[in-house]
Structures are given as C-alpha cells and as structure tokens.
Design a protein around this nucleic acid. Structure first.
Lengths: 246, 246
DNA sequence: GATATAGGATTGTTGGACATCTGGCATCCC
DNA sequence: GGGATGCCAGATGTCCAACAATCCTATATC
C-alpha cells in the first residue's frame, strides 16, 4: 500500500477518500479486511487525524467501511453504489422493487440468448441439471446454490456489467423474499420446468422465448413468495422502528 | 431478565447526518439552498464542530451537499443514490448504460400501457401533438421540452417509483448523449412517427405494441447518436485525466 | 461610476486532549 | 487443567482552540 498526499485541487479529505476507495474497489483491501488504524494512516500520510477521519467517515457513511469502537475499521462493501442502492430499495414499495427485478431478469434472459457462447451454454445446461438433482434429492442447500449460480451465469451471458451490478444490488436488498425458510418443495419442483425452458431458449439463442420464460419464472416465484415477503419486510421495519424509537 | 438498549446506538455524527439527510429528502431544504453555517449548526445542536463537520463531510461525499470555502454549504442533490449512481454509470461502458436505459424504457412503456388512466392518456396525446408542432416549427428548445415531458409522463403512467428513479439517474448520467448540439432536424422528424406509435399503443392499452414501439424508438435514437456520444464521453474523460494528472 | 481595498464570514486543516469501548492477556479460583 | 475475572494497551468517538485559505460585500478612492 502506498498512499500519497497530492497538491491542493480539491479538499485533502476528499482526495484521501478517493484513494481509500480505489484501494477497496481495486481489491487490494478485500471485503472483511481490517484496514490500518487512524494513527497509522496519519503517520503514513503526514496529515492531521481530523482530516484522515473525515475521509474515513465519508466511506463509513457510504457503507464501504465499518468502524468498530475499540477494535478497528473494516472493509464492508466493494461498491459505493451498493449501500445507497440497498437503502433506497428498502424504502421502496416491495412491489416496485420486485417488478424492477423482474424487468432486469427478463432483459438479461433476452440478452443472454443473443450473446451466450458455446461454453456458457454448456455450463447452463450443467447447472440446470444440478438444480433438478437437488430438487429430486430434496437438498435445499444445493438447490439454492445451483439456483444462484444459474442466475449469475445468465447475467454473465448477457454481457452488461452495469445491468448485472444493479440486478445484484437489487437481489441483495430483496434477499429477504427468497430466504431459505420460505423454500418449498412443491414450488421448487414446479420451478424446475420453468428453469429448463428458460435455459433451453437461451442455449438455442431464442431471445423471445427466453424472455417469456423468464417472465413466467419470475411470476410464479412472485405469486408464491409475495405474501411472505411482505410479512418479512413489515417485521423488519418494526424492528428498526423499535430500535430507533420512531 | 430484562435487557435495556444501550444509550449509544450509533455515533453522534451519523445521527446528525441522518437528520440532515431527512431535511433534504423531505424538501425542507430544497436543492440550491444554502444551509446554516457550521458554527450555527454547532450552536443549535450543542455539539463540537468536528462532530458536525464529520456529518457534513459524509453528505458532501455522497453528493447531497456541496461546500464552498469562504461562501457556505449548499444542497446539490435530493437523493443519496443520485451521485454514486451517476459516478458508476460514467465509469461503465457507454453501450451498457444505453442498453440498460433502453431496457427500462421498454419496460416503462409496457407498464404504462397497462396502468395509464384516461387523464394520462389525454395528456400523452397532447404532448405528442406539441412534439409534432415543435418539429414542424423547427423549434429545438420546444422539442426538447416536449420530449422530456413526454417521457416523464410515461414513467408516471408506469407507476413504479423505483424504476422511475433509476431511469432518471441514468438519463442524468447519459445526458451528454442527448445534448442539444446533437439535435438534428431530420432525426426529429423521423422520431415523430415513432413517438406517435408509442403513445397510441400506450393510450390504447396495448402493452406488447408499446414495448416494440419503445424498442424501435430507442434503437433509432441510439443508431443516430452513439458515435457522437462516444466522442463526447472520450472528450470528457480526457478533460478529467488532464485535471487529475493521471 | 468604476475600481481597489479592507473586513467579516465561512470552510479547510492542524494539534492535542480526554472519553469510551473492545479484544486479548494475565491472573485467580475451582 | 479449565473457566471466570480483572486489567490494560490500543482503537474509535468527541471535544477544544487556533490558524489558513477563500469568498462576498461594503467601503473608500480615484
């Protein structure tokens, strides 16, 4: 790690914040890492503690860092977009968030059908087979793993990094609606067929059919999970309201 | 056993930041307003200047506030999502950003067709008429105004606040690609027909036709403007690189 | 009337001090 | 030996006071 204190074009704390951000986004400071203490950063940069602290507070506020009193400061997110986006989604109507996710899912399916290569198509077929096996074995953990790997691969096939990131953040915010406790054997069995239709369309390059398959897949999931998701969201908000006394 | 919540649930500066954020998002401090000076906030809150400053720096970093030395601090954005999102989009591949926008545009058209009411349909017809009039009169300013009003109304018809906000931020980041200097009389005339087809489909509640119309509208715009947009983005990046000496 | 200048107001930066909390080590007791 | 207890170094949180750099404005000057 090398940090330099450059000449004055913007505020010093903003420049330090940018450098720290780059260390995180570049992966040099991975998520979970405990970063050097304020005193060490002060010594390395030759700045005052308040200036360094203001930079750190900025990243703490955006959610890239997490400071623990008496312990240290840890990297908690790779993207500055993640935390604001998750916060915004949590304030949104649940239907709106789910609908946006469905829109992106459908678009990703269509793009994936147009852009997947042979290797990716083979991997998709392998993953959907794993999904079916997990469902037959009633192995919930394996089912969830295969399902998320499948969707991740579809996003990779779509070759749109921005869309993939937005979808990912959205999924993170909505993960309460697909939490394991809501998993249902009958639902999983039903989804297998829809997944197979989707993957088949993508593999064959049929964008229109891929989009309709993605839509019906999302719809079936939504119909099954929406009531529980609403309950979970309401409970979460009650917890927060209680904690903050509003 | 009774457990009492700890007195300090979060840091003071974080709480102040939350309060300031709420003043902004609630509209009590509108965009452009000069907020009280640090010294006033210190006096009002009864906290030290450093604590208040850390809260302010957090909001400055997220882009909700802008501080000017010797002048004051001003509200510069209503949403904490806007600035990170715009930054992220500016780092993304231009094609990815445009593609995501097209996806949202298409989805909004479909949703609008399903959800518009009679009053909105009438307003859409009025706006598309204004668009045609502006095109005939070769009034560029009026054309741009009517065009943006039209798209704003479509988003309102779609009744998905989250989708609308993401679309809005995306459009803000991409505004270089629809900047007035790229406006072209022939292109505008061609777009009139596509707009009319789109609005007609929405007004009639034909979601499928609305989506295809939106797609062809975006495609035609994209084909016409992509080269210029690439140039504009490259120029912007050169400017930034020069300023920061990287 | 236009320009130059001085002053006040505001944010940026520094250095130091103390408070509060945490994790880990040493100690003590069983 | 193992577990509970107490202590302490180190980390972040908060406060204080001062100076620097910059901008806006009112005043003075020509």
């Amino acid at each position: 790690m090398t940090l330099i204190a450059p000449a004055r074009s913007s505020t010093l704390s903003a420049q330090i914040a940018r450098q720290l951000e780059q260390l995180i986004t570049s992966g040099e400071w991975p998520v979970g890492k405990r970063i050097p203490a304020e005193s060490e950063l002060v010594a390395q940069l030759g700045l005052s503690r308040n200036t360094v602290r203001e930079a750190l507070r900025s990243l703490v506020h955006t959610g890239m860092l997490e400071a623990r009193v008496g312990d240290g400061t840890y990297v908690s997110a790779l993207s500055e977009l993640q935390t604001p986006f998750v916060r915004r989604v949590n304030r949104a109507r649940l239907e709106d968030a789910i609908e946006l996710r469905a829109v992106l899912e459908r678009a990703a399916a269509g793009l994936a059908a147009r852009r997947r290569d042979a290797r990716q198509a083979a991997q998709l077929r392998k993953l959907v087979a794993a999904l079916r096996a997990a469902s037959r074995a009633k192995d919930q953990a394996a089912f969830v793993v295969a399902d998320s790997a499948l969707h991740e691969t579809i996003l990779a096939c779509a070759r749109n990094a921005l869309l993939a990131e937005v979808y990912d953040h959205l999924g993170r915010a909505l993960k309460l609606s697909t939490s394991p406790q809501l998993w249902d054997q009958a639902l999983a069995a039903k989804q297998i067929g829809l997944h197979e239709a989707l993957i088949d369309a993508i593999a064959k390059g049929d964008a229109v059919r891929a989009e309709t398959a993605a839509t019906s897949l999302v719809d079936s999931l939504q119909a099954a999970l929406l009531p529980a998701a609403h309950k979970a969201k309401a409970a979460k908000e009650r917890r927060l309201a209680q904690r903050f006394g509003t």
